[in-house]
């Protein structure tokens, strides 16, 4: 029953809350969609914490994404033991980097008075779930070798069944392993992952939904007109209205 709740129901609750909550927050409360940087108040400690954490996280996210999208490629890559070890060790390294980063960030928040002034309760919730996520991920890699193979062959079918609205809970529930610890950690890792997705709209996590990807192809200068300046002098057009197009320089 617990397995069904965690792996059959929680994913949908989390995804629904994330989608509805994020859209609501973006449209109704756009002002509050921000990364809430605190670098202005404290810059030095942030450097190591933030860089270690974010770059580790981005690499891990991309790794999970590849395992989800093209599991066959991961399995093919892992066919050679050397390549398997390279993948496992680098993934473990990125996780360690994230762990060190988040610990530095937690220390910074707890010990800097200025940062305390801009902290709210959800910031600590965020730290808690991220810590659980990183530590359980490291434990999976340590106890349940080899995680990359396992992800591609078990986790990807499960995730795909979730997105096909036919969750195959048994894959997780009946995961037969001699290692109790590995199973516990896998379940923790999956559960906390969905918790993270679910709390996106209520925390500073919203900032990764508005990651500035479009900056890469945008022109540098933006000029916005309140009205269509070519039409404004045309008296036949009674209400030229305002044009909010992003006209590039």
């Amino acid at each position: 029953m617990l397995d069904f709740l965690l792996f059959g129901a929680l994913p949908y609750v989390a995804l629904a809350v994330m989608l509805i909550g994020s859209i609501y927050r973006y449209t109704k409360n756009g002002f509050q969609v921000s990364s809430l940087s605190s670098q202005f108040l404290e810059g030095r400690q942030l450097f190591f914490g933030s860089q270690f954490f974010h770059w580790g996280m981005i690499m891990l996210f991309l790794g999970h994404l590849i395992g989800f999208l093209i599991p066959s490629a991961v399995l093919a890559w892992n066919g050679d033991p050397v390549r398997l070890l390279v993948l496992e060790f680098s993934a473990f390294g990125f996780a360690l980097s994230s762990l060190i980063g988040i610990l530095l960030l937690i220390k910074r928040r707890l010990t800097t008075k200025r940062i305390q002034m801009v902290s709210n309760n959800m910031d600590y919730v965020v730290y808690a779930v991220i810590l659980v996520q990183i530590i359980s991920g490291l434990a999976v890699a340590y106890y349940g070798r080899w995680g990359s193979n396992w992800f591609a062959s078990v986790m990807t079918p499960y995730l795909r069944s979730v997105f096909a609205f036919n969750p195959n809970v048994d894959v997780i529930a009946q995961l037969s392993t001699s290692n109790e610890m590995a199973l516990l950690m896998v379940k923790t890792h999956i559960t906390s992952a969905f918790v993270i997705i679910g709390i996106i709209p209520f925390t500073r996590f919203v900032h990764f939904l508005v990651a500035p990807v479009d900056y890469i192809w945008r022109k540098y200068q933006l000029v916005i007109w309140n009205w269509n300046n070519k039409e404004i002098r045309n008296s036949r057009n009674y209400f030229p209205g305002k044009s909010r197009d992003f006209r590039n320089n």
Binding site: G30, F31, V33, S34, S35, L36, S37, Q39, F40, H207, V210, P212, D214, Y215, R218, Y220, Q221, L222, V223, I224, W225, N226, W227, N229, F246, R247
Partner: peptide
């Protein structure tokens, strides 16, 4: 400032050239 904003929150007003930050679009990328 306009050129550097990753989220496109800064812009120059066409009518009078005043440079502004859209507070709804600013994401604190700094």
């Amino acid at each position: 400032c306009v050129g550097s904003c990753p989220s496109g929150a800064l812009y120059k007003r066409g009518e009078d050239g005043v440079v502004l930050i859209n507070q709804e679009r600013c994401r604190a990328w700094r």
